[in-house]
Design a protein around this nucleic acid. Sequence first.
DNA 1: ATGATATGATGAG
DNA 2: TCATCCTATCATC
Length: 268
Amino acid sequence: MPEGHTIHRLAAEYHRVFGGQAVGVSSPQGPFAEAAARLDGRELTGTDAKGKHLFLGFAGAGWVHIHLGLYGKVFWGHGPVPEPVGQVRLRLATDDAHADLRGPTKCALITPGEKLEVEARLGPDPLRAEETGDAAWKRISGSRTTVAALLMDQKVLSGVGNVYRAEVLFRQGIDPHRAGRSLRRAEWDAIWDDLRPLMREGVRLNRIDTVRPEHTPEAMGRPPRVDDHGGEVYVYRRAGQPCLVCGTEVRTEEHAARNLFWCPRCQA
DNA sequence: ATGATATGATGAG
DNA sequence: TCATCCTATCATC
């Protein structure tokens, strides 16, 4: 399930597999069928990502705008294209590869202008090398909203989801309940500067690892540990378990309809 | 088999 | 704040 690192990885993957080629486009059972027919056989000219939004560009036809939401996923395959099983919203296929998109919140054909509008609605993306965190700081520094909610607000900052939120606040020792306007500039800069390489590493490994080498169970002389979502993390979904750094029980609560996790001692 | 759960976002009230 | 979209996975029966 997707945060920004997943989307940027997909943009690179779609480009690597289909870029510069004429691609078979279909929407076997979905409401995208009409648009897919218009794209079928065109060249995939480029891909792009901002935050959790993915864009696939087709020659002379504009962009396919994809948002995975909570459930969306892409299934990759090689060789002969199998019959679609269940709901496939968008299938791209060449002679030797195919990609099936299932369950996205959004999959629509848009114009270049509409792509710019989507991007303009989003805050800076730590995975876009040319962007800075300044616009996000402007929103955060004047806000009475909690920093936990602000980091999840895609208009403020794009690409960060529940895992990166919890983990970056832990790594920076910041209490998630603090108001945005209580943050010092240096604290925000530390969050932004930490997110960039952290999320870049997420793109590379296709998972979220946030535990520093000095805090791994091996380094701390503790038994090995496996997080149930496939990455090594400090607090995400570790409620009731001891903090990897200080041993205090990790806490959780519902915060704006999402699960929030933090260490009350390290993030006091 | 069934139910709970999830890394997201929107629109109504 | 709540319901809703709608899919895969895992735990429990």
